[in-house]
Design a protein around this nucleic acid. Structure first.
Ligand SMILES: NC(=O)c1ccc[n+]([C@@H]2O[C@H](COP(=O)([O-])OP(=O)(O)OC[C@H]3O[C@@H](n4cnc5c(N)ncnc54)[C@H](O)[C@@H]3O)[C@@H](O)[C@H]2O)c1
Ligand SMILES: NC(=O)c1ccc[n+]([C@@H]2O[C@H](COP(=O)([O-])OP(=O)(O)OC[C@H]3O[C@@H](n4cnc5c(N)ncnc54)[C@H](O)[C@@H]3O)[C@@H](O)[C@H]2O)c1
Lengths: 208, 208
DNA sequence: ACCCGCTTGTGAACCATGTCACAAGCGTCT
DNA sequence: AGACGCTTGTGACATGGTTCACAAGCGGGT
């Protein structure tokens, strides 16, 4: 079976997970792993793993399982993690700063190349060797730096405006942390991470 | 139709979303809204909204739509947001501190009652009027404070251990931010928010 | 009082996703 | 070389979720 035109979103959401598990095995020195071993160890379903992986060609070995290194490389390639992704962070408050710091440390394939805020106290300050720009400079700075992914960490009230500025200046994917339902630009991959909603979801189970 | 024994997880994940949209309308002074208005305004599906809501009894008005206030109250009740939820935060690094600060401001139904870390520099420091405890005190402090939800913001290497300490001391729901696949306690509602994975998912669309 | 336009609630059709079961295939051991 | 044990890849099935289409029902206007 060769490359499908489109990966199902649910399959896609599991690939990074598999990758993480495999990296963990890799560090332990495991060279081969079967779908059922993976499943047991990480509470996944063996047949689902096989089905997910089989979409991209046969690279398991019957009777043996998968070669960990090869699978990691293959998934890295599939997900586009085999090259640097330049990112911008908008909103350098407590969350934005935490994210920026986090990405400077764990930056395997992701690299922050621009940061924005509007607060006089933050604009101009340095983030490592990076300067925090004023948000109004988004239209110029984004193309200059070549950032394609943006992280939105501004207050909800500013999020829609910032989102539009970002997508207008060529950003292709946005990870939004503001607790708001964005009016999306269909040409831009947009994902929202909504802490408040996760908590509310958990709260449901505690009604007792 | 009366209360179902169990809400489907996908329906559940949309209820907080509806709630958010409705609160927004409420602030604007809108008193009534139809499923199709909601759908258009927030890019949802009208029939899905109706189906989700109809599970909890008929409280729409045919020909008119839903009363915003009533729907908000009803969803608040359903999700258990009509009372205070006491929470603990474990790991007061940059993310934990941001979350704690965030929750102190936006604490409609969620209230932080305990904070933990292991770092000598942070243990004993104050978070508002709260003292940061050492993690080894989890077993005593959690029951004392009555926290039922925990937010895990420790490094991946410490996450499994902390998770187990928390669940052993009576925590009933955990929101985990560490980039690791936890071995779950089936009695505890566990949700992971994995920034890294979201980014990797977005990266896929930028392979071009 | 009745009609009419609108919207809900809901069965049925449709679609996606996950599970199961097994044939096909690899490697090893005799 | 042949048989055996194990694991993949995959069609058939089951499950669950979403969309569709429409009857039932409300409210306002005449
Ligand atoms: N802090 C958290 O733990 C947390 C958790 C979940 C979600 N969030 C959400 O993330 C967002 C940021 O949270 P935070 O705690 O960092 O808030 P914060 O107030 O600390 O930071 C917000 C930052 O955005 C800046 N800003 C405002 N308007 C801007 C604009 N137009 N362009 C660029 N920057 C702008 C502000 O100057 C400030 O520095 C909020 O929407 C919040 O709801 C935060
Ligand atoms: N910072 C971010 O933006 C971000 C984003 C996504 C995920 N995360 C994840 O969240 C976690 C925390 O990130 P961070 O940036 O705040 O890291 P951090 O290093 O700033 O903070 C971690 C904190 O946990 C404390 N800690 C360590 N072991 C502990 C234990 N056993 N009990 C209690 N506390 C303990 C440390 O003392 C430290 O204060 C990490 O797993 C990280 O991967 C962080």
């Amino acid at each position: 079976m060769s490359e499908p035109a489109e990966i199902s979103p649910l399959t896609l959401s599991r690939l990074p997970l598999y990758l993480r598990c495999l990296r963990q095995l890799q560090e332990k020195g495991t060279t081969h792993v079967s779908s059922s071993q993976l499943a047991q160890q990480f509470e996944l379903s063996a047949s689902l793993i096989r089905k997910d992986l089989a979409q991209f060609g046969e690279f398991g070995i019957r009777g043996t399982g998968y070669r960990v290194d090869e699978l990691v490389d293959r998934l890295n390639g599939l997900l586009g993690l085999d090259r640097i992704h330049k990112m911008a962070v908008v909103g350098m408050g407590s969350l934005g700063s935490a994210l920026a710091r986090y990405l400077s440390v764990n930056d395997r394939p992701f690299k922050i190349v621009a940061a924005f805020d509007v607060d006089g106290g933050r604009v101009g300050s340095k983030l490592g060797h990076l300067i925090v720009h004023h948000s109004r400079e988004i239209p110029e700075v984004i193309p200059e730096t070549g950032a394609r992914i943006a992280v939105l960490a501004v207050p909800a009230s500013a999020a829609q405006k910032c989102y539009e500025d970002l997508t207008d200046s060529g950003i292709e994917a946005v990870l939004n942390f503001a607790p708001i339902r964005l009016k999306r630009n269909p040409a831009v991959r947009t994902k929202s991470v909504d802490f408040q909603i996760y908590l509310e979801e958990l709260a449901y189970f505690l009604r007792s």
